[in-house]
Amino acid sequence: MKPWTFQITIYNPPLNLSKIFSNLISLQTLNLGKTRLYVMPENVFMHMKNLSRLYLNSNRIASWDGPKVFGRSKSIKRLRLLGNYVTVVNQTSFPESLLVSLEELDMSDNHFSCTCENLWFRSWIRDNQKKPKYKVKLVNYKNYTCKSPKKMSDAGVRFIDYNPTKVSCTEEPVWMYAIVAVAALIVITVAIASVLYKCRWNIRYKIYLMRRYKYTRIPNEEEFVYASYVIYSDNDREWVHDVFRKRLEDTEGIRLCVRLRDFEAGKSIVDNIAENMHLSRKIVIVISNNFAKDEWCRFELFLAHHRCVSNEDGLVFVMLNEVNSDNLTESLHVLITSNSYALWSEEETGETLFWEQVIEQLK
Score class of each variant (00 low, 15 high):
F6W: 10
Y11A: 10
N16K: 06
S18H: 13
L24H: 08
S26M: 14
S26P: 07
L30F: 06
N31F: 12
K34R: 14
M40F: 05
M40S: 02
P41G: 02
M46T: 05
M48W: 02
L51C: 05
S52L: 04
L56M: 04
S58N: 11
N59G: 03
S63T: 10
P67S: 05
K68A: 11
K74G: 13
S75M: 06
S75W: 04
L81F: 08
Y85E: 13
V86D: 02
V86Y: 01
V86L: 05
P95F: 07
E96K: 12
S97P: 06
V100R: 09
L105W: 02
M107F: 08
C114S: 07
N118E: 03
R122T: 12
R122Q: 11
R126T: 13
Q129S: 15
Q129V: 09
K130D: 14
L138Q: 05
N140F: 12
N140S: 13
Y141H: 15
T145H: 11
K147W: 11
K147R: 15
D154L: 14
V157I: 15
R158E: 05
I160E: 07
P164Y: 06
P164T: 04
S168K: 07
T170G: 15
E171G: 09
E172T: 13
P173I: 04
V174I: 13
A181N: 10
A181K: 09
V182D: 12
I186C: 09
S194W: 13
N202Y: 14
R204W: 12
Y205W: 06
I207A: 12
M210V: 09
K214M: 15
T216A: 15
I218F: 05
I218N: 04
P219H: 07
P219V: 06
N220L: 15
Y226T: 03
Y226P: 00
Y226F: 09
S228V: 00
V230N: 00
I231G: 00
D236S: 05
R237H: 08
V243P: 06
F244E: 00
L248D: 02
T251M: 08
G253Q: 03
I254R: 01
C257N: 02
C257T: 01
V258G: 01
V258F: 03
G266T: 06
D271T: 08
I273E: 00
I273R: 00
A274V: 10
E275H: 15
M277E: 00
H278L: 12
V284G: 02
V284M: 03
I285E: 00
I285S: 00
V286Q: 01
V286C: 05
F291S: 01
K293C: 08
D294E: 09
D294K: 07
R298C: 10
F299C: 03
N311G: 08
E312S: 04
D313N: 10
D313A: 09
N324Q: 12
A342D: 02
E347M: 09
E347R: 13
T349N: 15
T349A: 15
E351R: 06
W355R: 03
Q357I: 06
